[in-house]
C-alpha cells in the first residue's frame, strides 16, 4: 500500500476552506463582530425556545379555572349607583312612612265621623 503523504490531505482540506460558501463567510464575519463587541450571541433555535415558553404559559393559563366572583371591581360608577340605590330606598321608606301616617290620621277621622 502506497502511503498517502499528509500534505495531500492538508492541501485538499485547505481547498475546502478556501472555497467556503459566501453565505457562510458572511455569517462567520457577523459572529466574529458579535463576539468582539461582546453582544449576546444569537442562536438559531432561540425563537423555538421563546415560542415553546409562550405556548406553555398560554396552555397553563387556559387550564386554570377562571373565577369571576373573586374579581374585585374597583368601579367608582358601581359604587355611586350602589350608594344611589341606598338613597332611593331610604327615600322610598320615608314616603311610605308619610303615607301610613296620613292613612292613620284618615282612618281616625273616619272613625270619629262615624261615631
Amino acid at each position: 500500500m502506497t502511503k498517502i503523504p499528509v500534505t495531500e490531505f492538508t492541501d485538499d482540506l485547505k481547498s475546502l476552506e478556501e472555497n467556503t460558501q459566501a453565505t457562510d463567510v458572511f455569517r462567520l464575519a457577523r459572529s466574529r463582530k458579535t463576539a468582539l463587541k461582546q453582544e449576546s450571541p444569537s442562536y438559531s433555535g432561540i425563537k423555538w425556545l421563546t415560542a415553546g415558553a409562550f405556548s406553555t404559559i398560554l396552555a397553563f393559563s387556559l387550564m386554570v379555572p377562571f373565577d369571576t366572583d373573586s374579581l374585585s371591581t374597583d368601579n367608582s360608577i358601581d359604587k355611586a349607583l350602589h350608594a344611589q340605590s341606598d338613597t332611593d330606598e331610604s327615600v322610598e321608606e320615608l314616603y311610605e312612612e308619610d303615607f301610613y301616617y296620613w292613612f292613620d290620621i284618615y282612618q281616625t277621622e273616619l272613625l270619629v265621623s262615624n261615631d
Binding site: L13, E18, V25, S42
Partner: peptide, 25 residues
C-alpha cells in the same frame, strides 16, 4: 481561523446551523 473552525464543527456535528452556533459561542 474562522473558516477552518466552521468546517471542523460542521464535520463533527453534521449540521450547518449547529456548526455556526458552536463557532459563534
Amino acid at each position: 481561523i474562522e473558516k477552518r473552525a466552521f468546517h471542523m464543527a460542521r464535520l463533527s456535528t453534521r449540521s450547518l446551523e449547529d456548526a455556526h452556533d458552536i463557532v459563534q459561542e
